[in-house]
Design a protein around this nucleic acid. Structure first.
Lengths: 218, 218
DNA sequence: CCACTCTGTCACCGAGCGGTGAATAACAAG
DNA sequence: CTTGTTATTCACCGCTCGGTGACAGAGTGG
């Protein structure tokens, strides 16, 4: 018969520990995933080597080995980001015919608004961009804006903005408005006194946005 | 007899030390000033008890004693902030007659744009607002938005927005655009591909902004 | 078997952080 | 001078951070 106290020293919880296998590729992926998850959920404030290693369940040394430190890891995130636009934003016209530049910008605005609202990682990166000017964030920023510009170019097709309007400047304003309003909503459910909690609030915001676009581009 | 190595401990640079006088009010002010300067110049990232004390040239203990810690200090900054609007933004119409709501919003946009561009502290606070949701930043945020709302109300006078336009939502968008574009410019001299370095660039941005306002409000 | 590489872990370092208890120095009142 | 109050500094704590060198073990080739 087995003694009662033998229970404490048997197999030593072998089954529980999830034996870590030797697999570099998987570990690298785990680190990258942990980094993205951490950045998305906690923001850039507490984003560091120790936190990522903790999140990935491995030693931080591996981050140095495989990515050359935090910088390299951020760069890897940036590379991943290149596919963000193509993943999250539809590349077609959603079955509509975009006859005018106004049609195009209205649709682009709505797509970008929804995509940004749905992606916490992207939001955190945008917030990071306007808060700091380190080498790290500059890399991220560049990757993001490049992907975005490509997407817009692709959607634009042969449509051209009306004469007499500085489309680049106006569009920068529109995208700035979208980014800021989404960021503000994410942290405080409002922006400049405008509530942004439920779907109805966002309807109003979207309508206002469309109103602005149409006011400029007709 | 005095040992030779006693020389190292004599007068101890008395004359150099700039004798600190006992003056609580002055010290409190020094702390508050240091805090604002530090936040404006370095941003919220490295904003902490130690840094503020170092900047004020006093011991951090005094911050606990006089302000009850960082929270209290931030609150004091918020109180100060109440007077920001009245200090930095003219309260009159600049000699113009604001006949329509469009006139009003155009002028408000320009004033707010210039004021924000000129005030690094305010910019840092806005960036902080969209990056974090701590108790501290919520206090600041509240003070800022309250002051801003009061200013707008005061400027508005009896002018009313045109029917059929959700002015609150549209204005939130406009202010969001201004804030984001100024923040982005402050860290990277550009926003969404639009260069924002010299006065000429800002002219274009301002024109685009006015175009948007006029597009909605006529 | 050995020797070697590759993956992963551990222990440690110096520095900075927020926070606290006790000492010290200037002034005021008696 | 003595006593007490108030402004200011100092010394220290525990913790986390980024970073590094040494080590353990699995796999691989001879």
């Amino acid at each position: 018969m087995v003694p009662a106290n033998a229970a404490v020293k048997i197999p030593l919880e072998m089954p529980v520990v999830e034996k870590r296998v030797r697999n570099r590729a998987a570990t690298e992926q785990a680190i990258l995933d942990a980094a993205k998850r951490l950045l998305a959920e906690e923001g850039f404030q507490n984003f560091g080597i120790n936190a990522v290693a903790r999140g990935a369940g491995c030693d931080k040394q591996l981050i140095y080995r495989y990515y050359g430190g935090l910088n390299g890891l951020v760069e890897a995130i940036g590379t991943d980001l290149g596919s963000w636009v193509t993943d999250r934003i539809p590349d077609d016209t959603g079955g509509m015919f975009l006859l005018t530049y106004g049609d195009l910008m209205e649709r682009l605005s709505m797509l970008f608004l929804d995509a940004l609202r749905a992606d916490p990682l992207m939001r955190r990166i945008v917030a990071w961009e306007v808060s700091e000017n380190s080498e790290q964030v500059r890399r991220l920023s560049e990757a993001r804006s490049k992907a975005l510009a490509g997407w817009i170019e692709r959607m634009r097709g042969s449509l051209v903005p009306p004469k007499g309007v500085d489309a680049q400047a106006v569009n920068a304003m529109i995208f700035a408005a979208i980014q800021h309003i989404v960021l503000a909503a994410a942290v405080s459910d409002q922006c400049a006194g405008l509530a942004l909690k439920n779907g109805k609030d966002w309807e109003k915001a979207a309508t206002a946005l469309k109103r602005i676009v149409r006011g400029v581009y007709g």
